[in-house]
């Protein structure tokens, strides 16, 4: 803990605490939450054709997130085959 200023640590803890409190205080049946849930449940099958809501969300409503994950995996593969590979694209 030498290098980190103490004030930064305290601030981080405060932000985390505030986050947890906020999550606990906002009821799950809140208007906005309910509207979002109703939107996903009602629209997903009609607009994507998927009964499985998880598939509908990760390939339609959050497709950019999926693309980012694919990029992350590709970077991981590139790194591993660069550092540990010996055949295609390896550095050994």
């Amino acid at each position: 803990m030498r290098g980190v200023p103490r004030i930064l640590l305290v601030l981080t803890l405060l932000v985390l605490l505030g986050w947890v409190l906020l999550a606990a205080l906002v009821p799950s049946g809140h208007e906005a939450v309910g509207a979002g849930r109703a939107g996903f449940l009602g629209e997903s099958e009609q607009s994507t054709g998927a009964i499985n809501l998880v598939s509908a969300i990760y390939l339609a409503f959050r497709a950019y997130d999926t693309m980012g994950e694919a990029i992350v995996l590709m970077l991981a593969v590139a790194g591993v085959s660069f550092f540990a590979g010996s055949g295609a694209g390896g550095r050994k």
Binding site: S47, T48, G49, S55, L59, T66
Partner: peptide, 17 residues
Amino acid sequence: PPRLVLSTLNALIGVKV
């Protein structure tokens, strides 16, 4: 049909992963 696009994306992600 929209499901065709979803299944195509799914298959591509599956092959890729």
